[in-house]
Design a protein around this nucleic acid. Structure first.
Lengths: 129, 129
DNA sequence: CTTGACGCTTACGTAAACGTAAAGCACAGT
DNA sequence: ACTGTGCTTTACGTTTACGTAAGCGTCAAG
């Protein structure tokens, strides 16, 4: 099995980001594509990581935060201390995400309220006509 | 009834932001406190808005996006076109938030997976000892 | 009366996350 | 041999969201 690879332009097109962005992520240590000569070659691992990075962005995390998150995903088993550190990180991240979920649901609720008020105003306006 | 008010320092302390931040939000049109002479006086409305702004920030929205969101909350009833515009805005916002929720839940799931793997590795390490 | 404490404006500085040339190599087609 | 297409690096520019003085007004306490 050949194990598919991608060029930087392919990944950029697939995820709808610029080449500059992908290179920037590499600069920040978020991606580490293979080099064939000077050219970047992206493996499935890199592709997955890019997806995770962009998801993190959509959630409003900074690249630094995203770095620690993404690195958790493909951390080697390692020693006991390392594993416990990772578990602690996970707990922190989860707390963060739970907070965001709270905010998110509250906002959705508020939006529903505004919408209801809007509908009511609209109905009142039309009934009067 | 006196209708409570706050100073900029009080709000800053309550929400744990700097005075600079609050003034900056005013500069961007997100807050419009009363002025007594040169001094800013914040009313309940301003306080609520600040809360909404910060919640928006926690969700990763830009201040521009937050502005449109927050302004929806205390929009006047207005005319029909205005109301329909607002409803359209709400639909857009909701789609955005739903996307975020997807991302969020997927991330929480991934985190749970990593945690399980971690726990397993840890157990294997200890059983071997 | 002067010294804080608190507030104000003006304005330059900064970090993050890219955008945008500029200049060059490498290979493919005509 | 030339042109184009795609990739590369280097480096300065830009926007957002503030930080950080600098310098001034004001009111209450010592």
């Amino acid at each position: 099995m050949p194990a598919e690879t991608w060029t930087i332009a392919e990944l950029a097109a697939e995820y709808d980001v610029t080449l500059r962005t992908i290179r920037f992520y590499e600069d920040r240590g978020l991606l580490t594509p293979e080099r064939r000569g000077t050219v970047r070659v992206y493996h499935p691992r890199d592709r997955v990581r890019l997806g995770l990075i962009l998801r993190g962005k959509r959630l409003g995390f900074s690249l630094d935060e995203i770095a620690t998150i993404v690195d958790m995903y493909d951390a080697e088993p390692g020693e006991e201390g390392q594993l416990e550190y990772l578990l602690a990180q996970i707990t922190t991240r989860r707390a963060d995400l739970e907070q965001r979920r709270q905010d998110l649901e509250q906002t959705l609720q508020d939006l529903a309220d505004v919408e209801a008020r809007c509908q009511a105003d609209l109905k009142a306006l039309r009934d009067r006509a």
